[in-house]
Design a protein around this nucleic acid. Structure first.
Length: 569
RNA sequence: CGGGAUGUAGCGCAGCCCGGUUAGCGCGCAGCGUUCGGGACGCUGAGGUCGAGAGUUCGAAUCUCUCCAUCCCGACCA
């Protein structure tokens, strides 16, 4: 492609309405333009990259035996009402009405549609298992679209749905998709981690998320290199770190007498640590929660930890909300709550992080007062112990005992075992060998295609711009003629361009009659892996400079070596 | 939806607090000339409903109100 004939508008400055690197770079490099919040046009360069990502996905999916189909964006309301997600999804679904006042939605996902389709065309165990996928636009009216392509309202997803006759079928497909997803990301050439995740709204037994590692990632991953465990931060299993001896005030001093201390207006752990010059680990954080029935519970944690509500809910088998000014049915003195002197109706549960501690500080259940030297069992009882917090630095891998490490990531893929959730609701049944009618056992597997593009930028860029991995780079070679008014340069670069075209090398020839600096800057900004420069050195000695985008390394080749160089790319 | 901020030329911004002729600057864009390996220079020029509507005023980009859009922080997700 000749730059002068292409449509590739680049910007020198960051756009004012983007804060995240992948967003501003994809606008500056001329990949996308914003149409409305969370809605984008793909310009030629961005579209090219998208197609490359899609093709890698398509090839690997096909290799894994999945079969491509194409379903509509617009879907009738009935099937969503049948699965009840018309209501569960709620305002997150774009809904519309046709001229006959029938309800439709713009598909946020396609479980309903494909299950309905399967139910009328797959009747026999002989047709199973089968794995169907598509690469399609999805619509989700996100509460808050943000970060450009990372959370858009219209985005492209590869979604696959497997139908099996048995759990074994599902396991096989699930494992195949797991391996395929890993292969896809490896082929694209990005660093990633697979984590155990929550199943969320889509439902099902368990799931894995594929995370592209990036500093600005939305998700925190807790992992252990020793035993290869990795999980979402919220979900991570861990053992409480051993209490550091240097912090161990009172560990060996025996139990001291309780003292009430005046702490006017000191409500937060942070204020308290400053006021008393004590580490937060010596303070009991007491978090009050309530369930729908109006039962109130108190969870005690080490002051440096945060209550993981999901863990508390699992433990108590009830859904919970934090107590605040609005739902404070017992009028608890927020900021000064503690285990000692609580109402009898409130059951107290302890996090392992304080189990073996003594002489701690806690709220006195009286405004502006705390207690010193509180001791478990001597001063109050705990109804149950558990792990109720998020991990903190130093916490240990549950299976091997090594310290957990943390990384930031962007979720680009998610695979689920759905089981019979949708087949049951949408009448997706087949006749099995034993002559019995059974629901399909399903799995679903998604990759965010447009998100993958943004995640790649997020992982791979520098202050000059994007650094594309070769696999998805829009062009492999950026051919730069530094001075178009030098005929020798212009002609040599022109014939090099023609030669590479004939050899099917993907080359962007910057033939614009502008200063060389702009060409270098643009080339770096849009992230083409190799710069091939015809300039001064060519005029003098027929030397062509080769410069690599990723590590900025350089080599020189002579004109007569050019064909060989191109051959070995 | 709650909290915070912003809307002035294609892009990035100043002007607004303290109202007063033709609304500025940089980049980009067009023409001419000079330059030519890391965002060159000179001259000339085009380009604006000051987010929208209403109000206050002799007079509004500037003050008031309403609305809209966009971005950031929280619950959701590929």
């Amino acid at each position: 492609m000749r730059f002068s004939k292409y449509f590739l508008p680049t910007l020198k400055e960051d756009p004012s309405d983007s804060d995240i690197i992948s967003h501003s770079l994809s606008i500056r490099a001329g990949l996308i333009r914003k149409v409305a919040s969370g809605i984008y046009t793909f310009l030629p360069l961005g579209f090219k990259i998208l197609k490359k990502i899609e093709n890698i996905i398509r090839e690997e999916m096909n290799d894994a035996g999945a079969i491509e189909i194409f379903m509509p964006v617009m879907q009738p309301a009935e099937i969503w009402q049948q699965s009840n997600r018309w209501y569960e999804y709620g305002p997150e679904m774009f809904k519309l009405v046709d001229r006959n006042e029938r309800d439709f939605c713009l598909g946020p996902t396609h479980e309903e549609l494909i299950t309905t389709m399967a139910s009328s065309d797959i009747y026999s165990y002989k047709d199973l298992p089968v794995n169907l996928y598509q690469i399609q636009v999805k619509f989700r009216d996100e509460i808050r679209p943000r970060y450009g392509l990372l959370r858009a309202r219209e985005f492209i997803m590869k979604d696959a749905y497997s139908f099996g006759a048995s759990e074994e079928d599902l396991d096989k497909d699930y494992d195949a998709m797991y391996a395929t997803y890993a292969k896809i990301i490896e082929r694209i050439g990005l660093k990633y981690k697979v984590v155990e995740a929550d199943t969320g709204l889509i439902g099902g037994k368990f799931s894995h998320e594929f995370m592209i590692l990036a500093k600005n990632g939305e998700e925190t991953i807790a992992y252990c290199d020793e035993c290869r465990y990795a999980a979402n931060f919220d979900n991570a299993k861990f053992n409480i770190r051993p209490f550091p001896v240097s912090d161990a005030a009172g560990l060996n001093e025996g139990l001291k007498d309780i003292k009430e201390i005046h702490t006017p207006g000191i409500k937060t752990i942070e204020d308290l640590t400053n006021f008393l010059t004590q580490p937060p680990q010596n303070i009991i954080k007491t978090i009050a929660v309530k369930n729908n029935e109006g039962d109130v519970f108190a969870f005690l944690l080490s002051g440096d930890r945060t209550l993981n509500l999901a863990k508390a809910e699992k433990f108590l088998k009830t859904s919970l909300e934090l107590i605040n000014e609005d739902n404070n049915i017992y009028k608890l003195p927020l900021g000064f709550i503690g285990p000692l002197g609580l109402k009898k109706e409130i059951s107290v549960y302890g996090d392992y992080s304080i189990q073996k501690r003594s002489n701690l500080i806690a709220g006195a259940n009286k405004i502006d007062y705390h207690f010193k030297n509180i001791n478990i069992n001597r001063d109050f009882e705990v109804k149950g112990w558990g792990n109720f917090s998020y991990p903190v630095p130093g916490d240990l891998c549950e299976s091997c005992g090594r310290e957990l490490e943390y990384d930031k990531g962007i979720e680009v893929g998610h695979i689920f075992k759905l089981g019979t959730k949708y087949s049951t609701k949408l009448n997706g049944k087949f006749l099995d060998k034993d002559g019995k009618l059974k629901p399909y056992i399903m799995g679903c597997y998604g990759i965010g295609v447009t998100r993958m593009m943004a995640a790649a930028i997020e992982q791979s860029h520098d202050e000059k711009g994007i650094i594309w991995p070769k696999s998805i780079a829009p062009f492999l070679i950026s051919l730069i003629a530094t001075n178009m008014s030098e005929n020798k340069i212009k002609e040599a670069a022109g014939s090099a361009y023609e030669m590479m075209l004939s050899k099917k090398v993907q080359v962007l020839y910057d033939d614009r009659d502008i200063s060389a600096g702009i060409k270098f800057k643009d080339s770096d900004l849009i992230g083409i892996p190799i710069k091939m420069i015809f300039g001064k050195k060519f005029l003098q000695n027929e030397i062509i400079d080769i410069e690599y985008r990723d590590d900025a390394s350089k080599t020189e080749i002579k004109l007569n070596e050019l064909e060989d160089f191109v051959k070995n790319l």
